[in-house]
Design a protein around this nucleic acid. Structure first.
Lengths: 237, 237
DNA sequence: AAATAATGTTAGAGAAGCCTAAATTTATGT
DNA sequence: ACATAAATTTAGGCTTCTCTAACATTATTT
């Protein structure tokens, strides 16, 4: 067991960044890691923001001594900027681990979740989540019973939330009465495998494959069928 | 034949609120629950914001049809406002449960954490956290291994983070070399009980009680002593 | 080496939210 | 009842962050 890495040696001076500026900083760091040079255009594209806005943000970051750049030139992080960005990135990355690894959201959602949350978490909450993630990883490796149990719970979702092409195993039909009976008669039973063939243009109805047959279902009906998605890709949920 | 039973009754129209407005709405709901009438002054005090700002926010909420109020009069939620507020409150409350119950932060921190996060969590993330909280509660009742083990990990904190009057049990001394030797010789050993008597004006040094003796320690030194806080109050961490 | 394209910056405006100071309205005390 | 106190709103200003349009610079093409 290791518990050395979380040493928060942070000497917080006065660098309180707004959520927005933190985003810019993180973005610059990410881009810098992947390319030789970072330019306004890259940031703008990556954040989905216009270049003038980026320009302005860069000025603000430069005033805070976090970024070093010349007019019309490349953008670089100062040592302080890099240090801060690294902290933000670490936060982002284990938050993403939390959402993906522990909460079993797909990588993309987990990432965007982390993006939005990272600016609002207190250091203490960060630490606790970090520990939870580590604990979970340790436990998952040794395949303790509760990991599986938890996973089963977390992986449940209504059939209506799958995307086109997704495959899943039915866990239960969570409605009662006539509709339940109808669904069960159609073959929606626990353990059965199902695949989403495609959604109609307005997302309703959706076409499914079940036991080799194609079936159309209204989204409202599909909502009552609780499934466990079966991963196609190794990395995906 | 009708099968409307599955209908998710929430028909999200276009009520996308900013984080700030969500806060106001939630605040109004909370106050309304605890008092007969809600007034600008109450909101201002509760959110730590000046009355003119509240006034302006109320106008914005009224324009969105979430609040009903007359000039210089009381403030009430419309049915839609109440519905939305209730959703926000539910989110808040299980998030607080997550931070307090699962992550073992004290109630107050857990609450403020929930406050800041609730506006930025996607519905999916909410759902997963909700499930995790429920799972945790189930497990905690039957005292399964993971609850206890996880709790031990989550409850660890450096001695330097305790507040005056807090009591704790030492879990380990997480430094090496001469300092470690010195601390151990002073009596800081695993299982020993310790109490924070008080901090000096500048938070350094801090005065401790250990085995009936009073000891002064520099904060930097105390950081190396990992303890598990012992709750005084039933509700506290 | 121009002319053109791509990239970056300035200028100006607008929305959200916050503030203080100055009315205005409602409540309260004698 | 009327003067004062309290609560509320209005007015006006500030900051952050965004945008579009116009201008400036650098890069590329011919």
């Amino acid at each position: 067991m290791k518990h050395s890495s979380v040493q928060e040696t942070v000497e917080f001076i006065g660098t309180e960044l707004s959520a927005t500026l933190e985003d810019y900083l993180e973005c610059v760091a990410m881009l810098a890691a992947g390319q030789r040079v970072v330019r306004v255009k890259d940031i703008a594209k990556s954040l989905g923001i216009t270049m003038p806005s980026v320009s302005a943000a860069i000025v603000r970051l430069r005033e805070k001594g976090l970024i070093d750049s010349e007019k019309y030139g490349y953008i670089e992080l100062t040592p302080q900027g890099a240090a801060l960005a690294e902290r933000v990135c670490r936060k982002h990355s284990f938050l993403a681990d939390f959402f993906h690894g522990v909460l079993r959201m797909d990588r993309k959602s987990a990432n965007s979740e982390a993006c939005r949350l990272e600016h609002h978490l207190s250091p203490e909450a960060c630490r606790q989540i970090y520990r939870l993630v580590e604990f979970h990883r340790d436990q998952a490796q040794s395949e303790t019973p509760w990991t599986g149990e938890l996973r089963e719970i977390l992986d449940e979702k209504p059939l209506s939330e799958l995307k086109e092409g997704d495959r899943a195993v039915i866990r239960r039909v969570a409605v009662e009465g006539a509709l339940r009976k109808r669904l069960v008669e159609m073959g929606f039973r626990k353990g059965e495998k199902v695949r989403v063939v495609r959604y109609a243009p307005l997302r309703n109805p959706l076409e499914l494959e079940l036991k080799g047959y194609h079936i159309s279902l209204r989204v409202e009906e599909a909502r009552g069928i609780i499934v466990r998605q079966v991963g196609d890709e190794p990395e995906e949920e």
